[in-house]
Amino acid sequence: MPLLDIADLSAGYGGKTILDGLSLTAERGDVVSLIGPSGSGKSTLLRVLIGLTPPTAGTVRIGGEAVDYADKAGLKALRRRMSIVFQQFNLFQNLTVLGNLTLAPVRTLGVAPAEAEARARDLLANVGLADKAGSYPDQLSGGQQQRVAIARALAMQPEILLLDEVTSALDPERVGEVLETIRSLASTGITMLLVSHEMAFVREISTKVVMMDEGRVVEQGSPAAIFETPTQPRTKSFMQAIIRH
């Protein structure tokens, strides 16, 4: 049974369809990369999965259990199993790095403050920011902030981690440190769903690559299959456009 099972999922705003009956699965430990032109619905899919944008049709199952997006308790349960990292980091500006990492575990998971802090310090050490625990977000570089944001998501101990173009807002020389963090994360066996424009990185790290267009899955398969022997014309033209650059 797949850990994440998305079936016929649709969503949109104001009469405009963004996701159009999309289906997708991920096994435990998978690293699934979503690629495709802008506007194809990749980021919206992540927002729907985490419950920020309501779906209009379809089902999402995690470990066989259907998620009830209309229900507060359902959303609460969902967010204990799944977490997200945003393109713009969105760290709480009023809290220190440590505060960002401990607020939710203490308030929503009921973890004891001392335990939450110990875990937060471990996570910070893992992303190479052990010395920044007392800093405020605006004292950190973009790359550092994004690594804190990843640590914050991990502090919730999710089974599934969503990463939404996490390197797009960074200076080019800061991209590497964040990719390195994700790379080491992949080796821990956590299930990840990521949207990225770093094609070399996608090819290297993914267990599965999904080509999306107009709110649907065009084609999916192993990185080698999608990058080297795509079968659909839309995937081929997308790959050619990328290679030309």
Partner: peptide, 8 residues
């Protein structure tokens, strides 16, 4: 939104 997805 960040607070929301963290379940606060």
């Amino acid at each position: 939104e960040s607070a929301e997805v963290l379940g606060l």
